[in-house]
Design a protein around this nucleic acid. Structure first.
Length: 378
DNA sequence: AAGCGTCTCAACCGCAGCGTC
DNA sequence: AGACGCTGCGGTTGAGACGCT
């Protein structure tokens, strides 16, 4: 038997709030304080459910809300925090005074996710022939209106924006495709934990992956989780021992007590997110999506320290050179954007040594992170 | 001007955590 | 211990705006 609904829906108003309702709610909360949402509508004389009142207050009526567009600085913070926290919008919002989780979530889904998404291969169905395919060279023709970003871009080229304060992603050279949103949804949805208490989930999801050591250190094998057909589909399978049956050691991650899978996409997703100590902070959850994982892994090779190529799976179509950081695709003329993206990623992953010329590791990483964010925001 | 597809964002929905009894 | 209620969170939806054809 399911739970009773949070409120009796019959006879309650839904949809957009009117100014009158806003005033009633505002006045009530001013007089009585927030909380007791369940009883609030009745006491205030509103024909709304308590949840709706709470949402309206939290997202719109609260006096400490910051109005206006998300600034570049805020966008920067959102990108960085999302890398660490995943879709924990309320947590991210807590770092941005005056911004609500809903606002950030919407902003992410409509602006930032697509920017980040261009770091991924363009489609799950393509077996990674171009993992770093930053743009679709020949987007499918669509009927009707072009995507909004493109229109804005056009607008930028042709004249001033209607609202010059409005921040847009218009200058980002990418192609929006109908496939993007479902892919993004799928990706986002994986961050939702399925079980366990919150503390455990925090631990599980905030595994720290040392990028420099992940792909290519080869060791004795260690106590390995068997590379079953299932986890074969995860190109990089991390276990507490860090071992793989093929002899590739993925450095053990302290504090991780459960097997975690890290797909190529995960790395690509979070490549921009190296922190100052050369650590990539990612949100990882064991993926049950074999379809995606299989597609991801269907053509991934890695290079060992000795220079040999490892095949993650049988059907290789892409060579990912972890040392030289070059993605080798088949028969594809790169666009300038692709090259830029590759160069950016290559640069990001070059973190092996303790020093980089005269710069320390930390300085380089900080610079990388800032550059990546700047690039994303550009 | 109408038709259409896309985008944005406020609001809704369902679930999970937590406190209370 | 477990049933129950409240609250908060994250994913999803849909109305309206927008602008291209």
């Amino acid at each position: 038997m399911g739970r009773a609904p949070c409120c009796e829906k019959v006879g309650l108003k839904r949809g957009r709030w009117t100014a009158e309702e806003d005033a009633i709610l505002l006045n009530y909360i001013k007089a009585n304080g927030e909380g007791h949402w369940r009883s609030l509508p009745k006491n205030a004389g509103l024909l709304r459910c308590g949840k709706s009142c709470r949402l309206r207050w939290v997202n719109y009526l609260r006096t400490d809300l910051r109005r206006g567009n998300i600034s570049t600085e805020e966008e920067n913070v959102i990108i960085k925090l999302h890398a660490s926290l995943g879709n924990r919008w309320s947590l991210i919002a807590s770092h941005l005074p005056g911004r609500t989780d809903n606002e950030i979530k919407n902003y992410w889904n409509s602006h930032l996710s697509r920017k980040i998404d261009t770091f991924r291969r363009p489609s799950i169905d393509e077996a990674l022939p171009m993992a770093m395919n930053l743009v679709k060279v020949s987007p499918p023709k669509r009927k009707g209106r072009t995507s909004r970003w493109a229109m804005k871009k056009n607008k930028n080229l042709l004249g001033p924006k209607k609202n010059p304060n409005k921040e847009t992603s218009a200058n980002f050279d990418m192609v929006s495709s109908p496939a993007t949103q479902p892919v993004e949804r799928e990706r986002l949805s994986t961050t939702k934990a399925s079980s366990g208490d919150r503390e455990t989930k925090e631990r599980e999801s905030l595994a720290i992956v040392n990028v420099a050591s992940v792909p290519y250190s080869v060791g004795e094998g260690g106590t390995t989780s068997p590379l079953s057909s299932n986890n074969l589909s995860n190109p990089l399978m991390l276990s507490p021992s860090g071992g793989r049956e093929d002899g590739t050691i993925l450095e053990p991650l302290e504090g991780i007590d459960e097997e975690l899978s890290l797909s190529f996409n995960d790395i690509v997703d979070y490549a921009p997110l190296l922190d100052s100590s050369g650590i990539m902070d990612v949100s990882i959850e064991t993926s049950g999506d074999h379809e995606e994982a299989a597609a991801v892994g269907s053509g991934l090779e890695r290079k060992s320290e000795g220079g040999e190529w490892f095949s993650c799976v049988e059907d290789d179509c892409v060579n990912w050179d972890w040392e030289n950081h070059v993605v080798q695709g088949h028969g594809h003329d790169q666009t300038a954007e692709e090259r830029d993206g590759q160069q950016m990623l290559a640069w990001l992953w070059e973190t092996d040594g303790g020093e980089w010329g005269s710069q320390s590791f930390e300085e380089v990483d900080r610079e990388k992170q800032n550059a990546m964010v700047a690039w994303l925001l550009s």
